[in-house]
Write a protein that binds this DNA or RNA. Structure first.
Length: 521
RNA sequence: GGCCCCGUAGCGCAGCGGUAGCGCAGGUGCCUUUUAAGCACUUGGUCGCAGGUUCGAAUCCUGCCGGGGUCACCA
């Protein structure tokens, strides 16, 4: 139940006064002719055409939210904001119906209200292109004031801000207010959409088909991750929210598509951090007749295209770095990378006990009894990952932690798998996909054998997937990448929460109290 | 989950054992070209919640709730 605070009560009182004057505070129809940006551009064009003389009148109707409000007696100024930007309104009692102006002068109209202004373009004495208003219509009364952020335009063109809306919890819980107040936050999500569009365009140009596969799955798999569980009441069936798309997508290659991709949500029941959210957006693709080298080339093309789409060139700043996405990126084997940073050649310790001992000797802290591949991965994560600032492929991963990748030709311990790293973050994972159903079954069984009950991220065996593979799966290369992390990189945001409109937060007591009566109905 | 930090007016913050303050926003008044408009006056707080210590707690202690960081876990 809403308990209006004092400021809200004042606005409610104003709303009553407005309606008492016969003004509709929430009209249905708007008659906008120009965005803020278009109105300014139109006037600039008229000035150019006038060549120093009096420009031809430019009539406009603009609409937006009031972001600055300066009543100066019988003349007032306000800035309204729409998606294109801000524009100043110049209101003078002589130019308009006094009853309308009185709404402004008596401050019945507030910051944050949506208004429509009819008028002609002009320049104020201070030189700002503005609308000389002869009619002002309230479009929507705002009852809860937004945080006030004042802006000062400096001579060098930059904007200084006074006051801010920065409490991260409130910003995430009330993202609408965050977006309404912070234009840079709005921009980030515009860029996010552009990035996803660029990714999709690259995929389409590679000749791949965009598909959708089940989110609710009775058998989950394709990644080492704990799932969320749910239940279908009528079917009396427990279901999992997918942790990857992999197994469903590769079935489609059996079906005859040369390449498929999906951009969608994955759900992993794990920790939350600056780069982990329980639900996140993933891109996966599988393309027939290419191996992981081919996938690396597509990866380079894709990231180049995305960076260029946003920044106009294949580079983008992230933290203190300028990341250069231009191909080709270095390809370093896992063995070389770890050797370089730690001096440990893990091939001299080809079994888990000896490698574990070597890591301990080196000063590393590892849980006892881990598989060999996990230990190798630990070395990479602990000593190499943070140093991989510029885009880098780490290739040839341990076989025992890669159940869907084909073996390399040179030994039995490695598979044709790569992960790529940028700005010290793991960005994606790819392999030459295993397509021998006997080998795949053996890998599943091997994973099941090393399964420990406390390790509930071990996936169950997907018999239907094996059946699909027995019909014949073309050789193919596959790829997965976290879109959210990509957006972080390209937009220089340092936490995943700032590239998700609604990042996961704990529910508050208030939410629970409000939600419960609905369930009881 | 461990450890550390934070939660004070709508927003941003100060106060850190003597009973709550600043800026912006808000209200009233003046102002017909302002732009962080200005001037004068002014309203506004269960100091996250619950206990405890104390003559006295926003301030110290404990627990809980929420957030952030970090480690663990995890791609």
């Amino acid at each position: 139940m809403w308990q209006p605070n004092r400021l809200e009560q004042e606005r409610l009182d104003k709303l009553n006064q407005i309606e008492a004057r016969g003004v509709d505070a929430y009209p249905a129809r708007v008659h906008r002719t120009h965005s803020a940006q278009d109105a300014i551009a139109a006037y600039e064009a008229a000035e150019q055409a006038a060549n120093g003389g009096e420009p031809a009148p430019v009539a406009v109707i603009v609409a937006g939210r009031i972001r600055r409000f300066n009543v100066k007696g019988k003349v007032s100024f306000m800035h309204i904001e729409d998606q294109s930007g801000r524009i100043q309104l110049f209101l003078r009692i002589n130019d308009m119906d006094e009853a309308v102006y009185s709404l402004v002068q008596e401050h019945l109209i507030d910051n944050d209200d949506f208004v429509q202004a009819t008028g002609t373009m002009m320049r104020t004495k201070a030189g700002e292109i503005s609308v000389r208003v002869n009619d002002l219509t309230l479009l929507a009364k705002s009852l809860s004031p937004l945080p006030v952020v004042k802006q000062q335009k400096l001579e060098d063109g930059t904007v200084r801000e006074f006051g801010e809306f920065s409490n991260v919890e409130t910003r995430y819980r009330q993202r609408y207010a965050d977006l309404a107040v912070n234009a840079d936050v709005r921009d980030t999500f515009v860029q996010r959409a552009q990035i996803i569009r660029a990714v999709r365009e690259v995929m389409d140009n590679e000749g791949m088909l965009e598909v959708e596969t089940p989110i609710l799955q009775s058998v989950y798999g394709g990644a080492a991750a704990r799932p969320f569980t749910t239940h279908h009441n009528q079917l009396k069936q427990d279901l999992y929210l997918r942790v990857s798309f992999e197994l469903y997508l590769k079935r489609l290659l059996v079906g005859g598509y040369r390449g498929v991709y999906e951009i969608g949500r994955d759900f992993r029941n794990e920790g939350v951090s600056f780069k982990h959210n329980p639900e996140f957006t993933m891109l996966e693709f599988y393309k027939a007749y290419i191996d992981y080298s081919g996938v690396m080339e597509i990866t380079e093309r894709m990231l180049e295209a995305v960076a260029t789409a946003i920044h106009g060139k294949p580079e983008a700043p992230f933290r203190d770095h300028l990341i250069n996405y231009a191909a080709p990126w270095p390809r370093i084997t896992m063995r070389e990378a770890i050797l370089k940073e730690t001096g440990i050649d893990y091939m001299q310790y080809p079994d888990a006990p000896s490698l574990e001992a070597r890591i301990r000797e080196f000063g590393g802290r590892v849980a006892p009894g881990q598989p060999w591949g996990k230990l190798v991965e630990h070395l990479l994560g602990e000593y190499v990952e943070k140093k991989l600032i510029q885009p880098t492929f780490i290739i040839d991963y341990p076989r025992d932690i890669s159940p869907f990748a084909k073996k390399v030709t040179y030994d039995d311990l490695h598979v044709e798998r790569f992960e790529f790293y940028i700005a010290g973050m793991e960005m994606g994972n790819a392999f030459t996909e295993l397509n021998d159903p006997r080998d795949q079954e053996a890998r599943f069984l091997e994973m099941a054998r090393t399964f420990r009950p406390e390790d509930d991220d071990a996936a169950p065996i997907d018999e239907d997937y094996l059946q699909a593979m027995r019909y014949g799966m073309p050789p193919n290369g596959g790829f997965g990448m976290g879109i959210d992390r990509l957006v972080m990189l390209i937009t220089d945001q340092h936490t995943i929460r700032d590239v998700l409109l609604y990042p996961h937060l704990r529910s508050t007591k208030d939410n629970e109290e409000e939600a419960s009566p609905v369930d009881e109905i």
